[in-house]
Design a protein around this nucleic acid. Structure first.
Length: 472
RNA sequence: GCCCCGAUAGCUCAAUGGUAGAGCGAGCGGCUGUUAACCGCUAGGUUCCAGGUUCGAGUCCUGGUCGGGGCGCCA
């Protein structure tokens, strides 16, 4: 008999003979018709488990089938039939149920058939994928990754694998994890007492990357349209539901492009992700809508249809100053927006994703393009930066048009107390055939949160890494 | 890093400083084309760790560990 994925079994015609393999989600017994058991089996290929009907006349019924528990693995041979009961369209009348793996102590099986808190399930991350929620998260996460790659490929963007280990100590986006093979108990020192990195594996100080942006800009300045999609590491001591020490980021970089081209690309990416989910993972979306956050399906429909709305930082500040909301932190032009301000804009004022552009230059990175004096009627100088804010998550995307003018770039590097020489190859891009270009970073886990309604970012990555959290 | 909250049965939680409890899960039995099944019985505890106060501490105090929420850093 043909081994069939459960998702395909649901679409097969009645009368199909098949084998399915998976894990028991629930079992219920009945005395009717001489005794039978209903075994719900899942294999991860779709949201719903399939109902297997096992009758007491099967040879191993009393010895094995009646003793099945949540978590046991089984192979089932049978015939697909229209269900005689309510609650499912089809079911499998079993001819044979082979137990592949028992649960050795059902009393202590960590993910028994009952509700568990997400905090608890994080402690059993190796088994939590057997639950409805984490199975759904895994499938949605996969679908979103596929959508990103398909979307970028359809627009002729090349996926560039920027390095994980970096020798640049100038990436600037926060604390880094050191990469070293030196013996902690016997660290080589130079004459002045500092660590002698020339003795280390790479012969210099190295870290895990905090962004592929600087590297991928080099590819944009030759291949025109490129992006990275890979792991990123930040050693910040961040304790929030929106931060991880290891996360995945998508960083497109577009040559001959300005900030609006950048936003258009990000907006299209979100639309594509949402419409693909509606088309491919409606089963999981409906679960999230029902059990995790009401309105997820409507949210995806809204994203699929509407482009991201754009507003200037200067106008956003005016909205915040003139609204009647009480904020803990003062709203002031020139200051970074607090997360309460961002959430007000996207969740209450606009009730949709919002791209905020043209931020004061002093609160943004050196590589962001300096706007002309008086842009947007702003009271101070701004840079062509963009943050895309979404309901429930806050900042999903951070990007900018890059400063392509060498003189201005050098001025900005100096202004921020950085050293030109550290950026020699980055500056070369401006010396040799410079072009206007733009890009952004999209936090992949935050995207998964936005599309599922999952509240804690640690529940949308298989094995979360955060301060004091590296089990599994 | 800062502020707040929490830790008791496999899980989720109760218990005024005075004998440690329930629901779910698990085991056994009953009933039923069942599906958050239902009914009965049974088992299940180093009350996070280390000190202290007290005749007596799950409860109060001190320190620690771990977890959660908010904020900051950002994606």
């Amino acid at each position: 008999m043909a081994w069939m994925k459960i998702k395909d079994a649901f679409g097969a015609p009645a009368g199909t003979e098949l084998t399915v393999k998976g894990w028991v989600r629930t079992k219920r017994d009945s005395n009717a018709d001489g005794g039978l058991s209903f075994v719900a089996v899942h294999d991860g290929t779709c949201f719903d488990p399939i109902q297997v009907v096992a009758r007491a006349d099967l040879t191993n019924y009393s010895e094995e089938i009646s003793r099945l528990n949540t978590g046991c693995s089984v192979e089932v041979d049978g015939v697909l039939v229209e269900s005689q009961g309510k609650g499912q369209s089809v079911e499998i009348q079993a001819n044979a149920v082979r137990v592949i793996g028992w649960v050795e102590d059902p009393d202590t099986y960590p993910v028994s058939n009952k509700r568990h808190s997400f905090e608890y399930l994080r402690e059993v991350a190796h088994l939590r994928t057997r639950t409805n929620t984490f199975g759904a998260v895994a499938r949605v996460r996969h679908a979103l990754a596929q959508s990103v790659h398909r979307y970028m490929d359809s627009l002729d963007y090349y996926w560039v694998h920027t390095p994980i280990v970096t020798g640049s100590d100038c990436e600037g986006a926060g604390e880094m994890f050191r990469v070293s093979t030196l013996d902690f108990c016997n660290i080589p020192k130079t004459d002045d007492g500092s660590v002698d990195y020339s003795k280390d594996f790479f012969g210099k100080e190295t870290n895990l990357t905090v962004s592929g942006q600087l590297n991928v800009e080099t590819y944009a300045c030759s291949l025109s349209r490129v992006y990275t999609f890979g792991p990123t590491f930040r050693a910040e001591n961040s304790n929030t539901s929106r931060h991880l020490a290891e996360f995945w980021m998508i960083e497109p970089e577009i040559a001959f492009a300005d900030l609006h081209d950048d936003i258009e690309l990000a907006s299209g990416m979100l639309r594509r992700c949402a419409s693909d989910l509606l088309e491919r993972r409606m089963d999981d979306l409906q679960f999230f809508d029902l059990r995790i956050e009401k309105g997820i399906v409507d949210r995806m429909k809204m994203i699929a249809d509407a482009p991201v709305k754009t507003i200037t930082y200067t106008d956003a500040i005016k909205i915040l100053e003139n609204c009647n909301e009480k904020f803990e932190y003062e709203v002031k032009w020139g200051a970074d927006m607090q997360s309460e301000h961002e959430r007000y804009l996207t969740e209450k004022h606009f009730k949709q994703p919002v791209a905020v552009i043209n931020y004061p230059k002093d609160i943004k990175a050196f590589y962001m393009r300096l706007n002309d004096e008086g842009t947007d009627g702003a009271p101070g100088r701004t840079v062509a930066a963009v943050d895309i804010l979404v309901p429930g998550v806050g900042e999903l995307v951070g990007g900018s048009q890059r400063e392509e003018r060498l003189g201005v770039l050098d001025m900005r590097i100096e202004e921020m107390g950085l050293h030109k020489d550290d950026y020699w190859w980055y500056r070369d891009l401006r010396k040799y055939g410079t072009v206007p270009h733009a890009g952004y970073g999209l936090g992949f886990e935050r995207l998964v949160q936005f599309c599922t309604g999952m509240q804690n970012i640690r529940d949308v990555i298989p094995f979360p890494r955060a301060p004091r959290q590296a089990e599994f």
